[in-house]
């Protein structure tokens, strides 16, 4: 057993491993990563606390049931709350069938087809478009172009704009829910002589439904918190009445909050903090529903 090495042969003594120094940097690095988490949480807590401390005392029944007013102490959220609920229903009515239908088409009918790929790339691109650009689209198409139908700066114009904004999210979550369902289930259906649609509607969709619903609610909560596209289509007006139909002018919670924040008077800032609390509670309820659905769904599958 002779050792022949023509070239230099590194020996253990050629290494200065310096473990203590390396471990010191390791510790600093680990602390830095934990600090990043801590800072994020701290900021969230600060944000929530600053809003709560400022706005909580202002919350009252009359705050929810009063119309906006030039006097801060009389101003309330009624029209904004009503507008948000109108928007919620209208956006769902538009975006849910469109998004789920498109998701089913892309995942079940047009998988790997030419058209499917084009639409997929397109959806990825849409996800990167700033929301205010959707506002510009809505302003031109729904407010101006289709004014005779939509009534201009109305609930339906706003709902259509936001529906387009969240459509990609619903499509993607629908596709993911459908993808999670094993192919064996579909094949079992085909083997019994069912058409594609019979298999989808009777076997696949019922199982995928909770997942689709979760994705839709999350998308909807995104829409409910949006402000910029609605300002762009001109929804920021003084609304002291309740919407009567889809062509009514409207305001929503985030816009009312924006309105109050941008006033110089401190009293309106208090109102805006209280408005934020209401908005966050609405969003929390929606997200909570989504999480509950998701957990239930996962338990069923597990």
């Amino acid at each position: 057993m002779t050792t022949q090495t023509p070239l230099t042969d590194a020996k253990s003594s050629d290494f200065q491993v310096n473990l203590s120094g390396r471990y010191k940097i390791d510790t600093i690095f680990a602390i830095a990563t934990w600090s990043a988490i801590a800072i994020s949480i701290l900021v969230l807590v600060t944000l929530l606390l600053s809003v709560l401390i400022e706005g909580f005392p202002r919350l009252s029944w009359s705050f929810l049931t009063n119309f906006p007013s030039r006097k801060p102490e009389e101003a309330g959220l009624l029209s904004a709350l009503a507008g948000t609920i109108w928007m919620m229903v209208t956006i769902t009515a538009i975006a849910f069938p469109l998004g789920v239908g498109a998701g089913i088409y892309l995942e079940e009918f047009a998988k790997d087809s030419w058209l499917g790929r084009v639409i997929e790339i397109n959806i990825n691109n849409l996800a990167g478009v700033p929301s205010i650009i959707y506002g510009l689209l809505g302003l031109q198409v729904f407010v101006r172009f289709m004014e005779p139908l939509t009534g201009g700066r109305s609930i339906i114009s706003g709902a259509l704009t936001l529906a387009l904004l969240i459509l990609p999210i619903i499509i993607v979550s629908t596709r993911e829910s459908l993808r999670a369902i094993p192919d064996s289930l579909r094949q079992a259906g085909f083997a019994l002589g069912a058409t594609e649609w019979q298999v989808i509607s009777r076997q696949v969709l019922p199982i995928a439904f909770p997942g689709i619903l979760t994705g839709t609610i999350l998308a909807l909560s995104r829409a409910i918190g949006e402000t910029a596209p609605l300002i762009t289509i001109g929804a920021l007006t003084f609304i002291s009445f309740l919407p009567e139909n889809l062509q009514s002018p409207f305001t929503v919670l985030p816009i009312q909050v924006y309105n109050w924040v941008s006033r110089p008077q401190q009293e309106f800032h208090v109102n805006s903090a209280a408005g934020i609390i209401v908005l966050m509670v609405v969003l929390l309820m929606m997200n909570g529903t989504a999480v509950l659905l998701r957990n239930k769904f996962q338990k069923q599958r597990g």
Binding site: L106, N122, I123, L136, L137
Partner: peptide
């Protein structure tokens, strides 16, 4: 299938709408 394909095309129409408008 036809109706859902049209739904899927709404997203393409959105892109076209945005580009054309701008």
């Amino acid at each position: 299938k036809t109706v859902f394909a049209i739904f899927a095309l709404v997203s393409v129409a959105t892109t076209i709408g945005i580009v054309l408008t701008l």
